[in-house]
């Protein structure tokens, strides 16, 4: 036997280095940080469109809001004696989404305040990422909208030329297309809606919400990466389209066309990036569809008959509150079982 010789030649594993752990021993490369990075990447076209339409100040607002969101999260981590959680990228995403929901004219202190409300009151007080029941960026936006309505609705027309872009921020205010169609039904006939302007975002509104095509590109990117479910934007926008189409059909003089409803306001931003937020929306595909349809109905009702011209933020927050119930109602039953009574009553 020449095993001794072989022992010298053959390298064997060092038993003291072995790790014992439960299966599975393989893991997909996905991680939270990567998902957040992809969502931020998907938001970039809309950010660039916002800067293009509203000038360099839009970039300044976005940077400021993101920086304050990150700072508030660090501060909250310190106060709560947690490990730093900014590394997961959620604070950057929340800050960016909040900035995209602000009009380009907001003063700096509003950005900082909004980031505080979004990060601290919207997320950290519940325990941080994963535990917040409401979309933090929308919590920030809605709090600002209700608390500072005049600042939050001071919209300006988009830039018309390179000259505008280089000059100081615009000071002439202009109502958004939704405000026009909402507040002045008797003048609707006089309002000429240019769908192309709405499509490319050449109209007044919040920084990141006006450019439908940029949001669509980002949304399709996320759908292709399987990070959001296509059912959510399709059902959300589809529901708004159907309801507003019926309203418009019944009374064209009172209600705007369905296409203008779809293309204007925060619908695209909400449908692609807010109603698809993982933490605050249902787990299952079926639940997502219920959520999206619910958002569509509430948005339409607020836009058509509510006292606010826009209802996307409210609708998503209301449906966020219903998410646990939707989860229970749409809980699948495992392969080979029937739904139990406990699941039926949503125990």
């Amino acid at each position: 036997m020449n095993t001794d010789l072989e022992n010298n030649e053959i390298k064997m594993p060092d038993v003291s280095r072995l790790i014992i752990s439960g299966a599975p021993h393989y893991h997909s490369p996905d991680e939270i940080r990567g998902i957040m990075f992809m969502v931020i990447l998907a938001l970039l076209p809309a950010c660039l469109a916002g800067i293009w339409h509203f000038g360099i100040r839009a970039l300044w607002i976005m940077l400021l809001t993101v920086a304050s969101a990150v700072s508030w999260e660090v501060l909250a981590n310190k106060v709560m004696k947690q490990r730093l959680s900014v590394g997961d990228g959620t604070a950057i995403l929340t800050g960016l989404l909040l900035a995209m929901n602000l009009p380009p004219t907001v003063p700096e202190w509003v950005c900082v305040l909004g980031a505080f409300i979004a990060i601290v009151l919207g997320k950290m007080v519940y325990g941080g990422m994963g535990y917040n029941p409401f979309n933090p960026a929308l919590v920030g936006r809605v709090a600002l909208l209700l608390g500072l309505p005049s600042i939050m609705t001071r919209f300006v027309p988009p830039m018309h030329s390179m000259w505008d872009w280089c000059s100081a921020a615009n000071t002439v205010t202009q109502a958004t297309p939704l405000v026009l169609t909402h507040a002045t039904p008797h003048t609707r006939a006089e309002i000429v809606v240019d769908y192309m302007d709405l499509f490319i975002g050449h109209c007044s509104g919040c920084i990141g919400e006006t450019c439908f095509i940029a949001l669509l590109v980002g949304g399709i990117f996320l759908i292709c990466l399987n990070l959001i479910r296509w059912q959510v934007p399709v059902c959300y926008i589809g529901t708004v389209f159907i309801i507003t189409a019926i309203a418009h059909r019944v009374s064209p003089s009172d209600y705007a066309t369905p296409l203008s409803h779809v293309l204007s306001g925060g619908l695209a931003l909400g449908a692609f990036f807010m109603a698809t937020d993982m933490v605050t929306t249902p787990l299952s595909r079926a639940g997502s569809v219920v959520f999206a349809v619910g958002c569509g109905i509430i948005t339409s009702v607020i836009r058509l008959w509510g006292s606010y011209p826009e209802g996307v933020s409210f609708s998503i927050l209301i449906m966020n509150a219903l998410t646990p119930l939707i989860d229970k109602a749409t809980a699948g039953h495992p392969f080979g079982t029937v739904r139990t009574a406990a699941q039926e009553v949503g125990k």
Binding site: I32, M129, M278, V279, T281, A331, G332
Partner: peptide, 25 residues
Amino acid sequence: QYEPHPCIRCGRCNDNCPMGMMPGI
């Protein structure tokens, strides 16, 4: 080796589960 984070409710475990269970919940 990974350190677990809180669930972000992405629903992937639901979609992946061959038994149709809700591993996250």
